[in-house]
């Protein structure tokens, strides 16, 4: 088994035991959806584009809660130093952490997307499955950028404040594209029609992943 797998399995084991990140992400995201539904008022329908915006507000804000926690755990008892003196390269540590964040986002969305359709689904042509490509592509880019920046912020005293301040401007293009792609899916457009929107999402994901992989050693190592 590879070193990345041991790292990934260790984090998921702790997460399953503590239920800190996944549960808080899901609960917070569902709460945001309910509040927005109450604000919308009874009997009103959202356009696909507005509904997509509502979904991404809930997904992005809830995901930030989990991102910070996954890396903060390595700062307790100095575990990050143990990873750095191990033969696992910083790139391997980054890849494993990004995969943990990706898994948590997917698990949280497995609950949030059905809740979204229950609350806002009336009048939308596209179903939950149509959202899968755009969700997965954004999740990949978001978890890569988020893992890098959570490593930056985990070394500071106010990491829970610093992480969103650093992360949101960086992922703005990704979220803007995600809203368009999701809106298009909710409007019932075929996958082939949505490809021009999905391709840039994949490109952003690759750029964030490559940047994270290359920059991570400089973020976690002391001078």
């Amino acid at each position: 088994m590879s070193r990345a797998w041991f790292l990934y399995r260790k984090d998921l084991r702790i997460e399953l035991r503590k239920k800190e990140s996944g549960a808080s992400m899901t609960f917070f995201g569902a709460l945001v959806l309910v509040i927005l539904n109450v604000a919308q008022g009874p009997g009103r329908r959202l356009t696909p584009e507005t509904a997509a915006g509502v979904l991404w507000v809930a997904v992005i804000f809830s995901a930030v809660l989990g991102l910070g926690r996954v890396f903060a755990r390595e700062r307790e008892n100095g575990c990050i130093s143990a990873l750095l003196v191990s033969p696992a390269s910083p790139g391997t540590v980054f890849a494993a952490k990004a995969c943990v964040n990706l898994t948590l986002m997917i698990l949280s969305q497995a609950v949030l997307v059905p809740v979204f359709f229950v609350l806002f689904g009336t009048g939308l042509t596209g179903g939950p499955l149509a959202l899968v490509p755009s969700l997965l592509l954004v999740d990949a880019g978001f978890s890569a950028a988020g893992t890098l920046l959570s490593a930056v912020s985990a070394g500071t005293r106010r990491n829970e404040v610093l992480l969103p301040i650093l992360l949101f401007p960086l992922i703005l293009p990704l979220v803007a594209l995600a809203v368009k792609a999701t809106g298009s899916a909710l409007a019932g457009r075929a996958l082939a029609e949505r490809l021009p929107l999905l391709e840039p999402l994949a490109a952003f994901g690759l750029i964030y992943a490559a940047a994270g992989y290359l920059l991570f050693p400089f973020v976690v190592r002391e001078g």
């Binding site: 088994m1 041991f6 260790k10 100095g78 575990c79 130093s81 143990a82």
Partner: peptide, 27 residues
């Protein structure tokens, strides 16, 4: 091998799980 001021142990894992994790990390 390094023993530092900090334990480098995960509080939420058992003693066995901690050692198995590090053993896996070192191949």
């Amino acid at each position: 091998g390094l023993v530092s001021h900090q334990s480098f142990l995960y509080d939420d894992l058992t003693a066995r799980e901690n050692l198995e994790f590090y053993a896996g990390l070192y191949g």
